[in-house]
């Protein structure tokens, strides 16, 4: 797998863990262990996200790279992947 895909899949894994914990915390709002895990995964996800976005562009339109053109529209979109971002068929 290329570096861009590896990094993206790491972010996806942390973000999934975060979402699963979010649902758990919705019905267990005073569970301190889950809250601690959430905090840890959030830090990891945000670090990786910073790395990814500075190298490969925005995952969310609120990340604005220091360039003169609008990078949000750049390929690939999530449904375009077929075996990693390097194999994007358009």
């Amino acid at each position: 797998m290329d570096e861009q895909t590896t990094l993206l899949e790491q972010i996806m894994a942390y973000d999934f863990a975060l979402y699963d914990l979010q649902l758990f915390l919705d019905t267990h709002p005073s569970d301190e262990n889950a809250l601690r895990d959430y905090k840890m995964a959030l830090e990891q996800s945000e670090n990786l996200r910073k790395q990814f976005q500075s190298k490969y562009g925005p995952l969310n339109a609120r990340y604005l790279p220091n360039t003169t053109c609008w990078q949000w529209i750049n390929d690939p979109w999530p449904w375009d992947y077929k075996g990693g971002m390097n194999n994007v068929v358009l």
Partner: peptide, 15 residues
């Protein structure tokens, strides 16, 4: 809602 440019779980179907 805001859009995140990724799926929740990877979808990479080759065949």
């Amino acid at each position: 809602w805001y859009y995140e440019k990724k799926t929740q779980y990877p979808i990479n179907i080759k065949k």
